[in-house]
């Protein structure tokens, strides 16, 4: 088996430079690569383009990179939970490309699957479709959307083995699998790194072929954004 293990987050992020384009998994704060984000803050790389469904909250997730003004451009679908983001965007400090969530997911998938572009109905007739090719298929209008080009994808999985095979948990899966497929260099942090043979091949969500570097993550906070419960009684 080809061993993908790096010893820590510092080694995992070797090659990261100013001005690069990254994909970062997660939906809200669920399934975000916490260790990689912390290290990007430590490295102080700037002028980044980040492709991520959301932009974290003010003091966690990608919000940490926004605070330090490390991000030049965000490509996201929903950014409603981050006041600093909204401030930087409305003042023009931050360039923002808001795109439909399904289009974002499919563009990531297309990137990894070798598909340069595809047609989707989402956004037809709205400002999202401005300047894009449109086409009628069977009486309905569609918009041409393109794959991305990302130097690194930062992915969070639940379990992974040394060959880079991944299993996700709950709704922390979200964008992580497609981004894992899409990165030129895919860096995966896992809650539990195991030896090959320990994961059931039938249960693998993402095969190790898509993964270049994997490491055991540490100190997961796994913050809950909206704690909603029903009382015990």
């Amino acid at each position: 088996m080809i061993n993908k293990v790096v010893k820590n987050v510092e080694e995992a992020l070797i090659g990261v430079e100013n001005g690069m384009t990254f994909m970062l998994g997660g939906f809200g704060l669920c399934g975000i690569p916490e260790n990689c984000i912390s290290e990007l803050v430590n490295l102080g790389v700037t002028e980044l383009t980040c492709i991520s469904n959301n932009a974290g909250v003010d003091d966690f997730g990608l919000g940490l990179l926004l605070q330090k003004r490390q991000i030049k451009k965000m490509i996201s679908s929903y950014v409603g939970e981050n006041d600093e983001f909204e401030r930087q965007m409305l003042s023009g400090e931050l360039e923002v490309d808001l795109i439909p969530q399904g289009t974002l997911a499919e563009r990531c998938r297309a990137t990894g699957a070798g598909i340069p572009a595809f047609y989707t109905p989402a956004g037809y007739g709205t400002e999202v479709a401005e300047g894009k090719e449109t086409r009628n298929f069977n009486g309905k209008m569609y918009v041409l959307e393109h794959a991305f080009d990302a130097q690194f994808a930062f992915v969070k999985a639940w379990k992974g083995d040394t060959a880079g095979n991944l299993i996700f948990k709950g709704t922390a899966r979200n964008f992580n699998p497609m981004m894992a497929m899409a990165g030129k260099i895919t860096v995966v942090e896992v809650e539990e790194l195991v030896e090959v043979g320990e994961l059931d091949p039938n249960q693998i969500h993402i095969p190790g072929i898509f993964v270049q570097r994997i490491f055991q993550g540490t100190a997961y906070e796994k913050r809950i954004e909206q704690r909603t419960v029903t009382s015990k009684s």
């Binding site: 996201s76 679908s77 929903y78 950014v79 409603g80 909204e86 965007m89 409305l90 923002v96 808001l98 795109i99 439909p100 969530q101 399904g102 289009t103 989707t120 109905p121 989402a122 956004g123 037809y124 709205t126 999202v128």
Partner: peptide
């Protein structure tokens, strides 16, 4: 106010 469309554009288009 710019929060983004999330999945709404995909949902209403389909």
């Amino acid at each position: 106010m710019v929060k983004g469309m999330g999945g709404a554009m995909d949902l209403v288009a389909s």
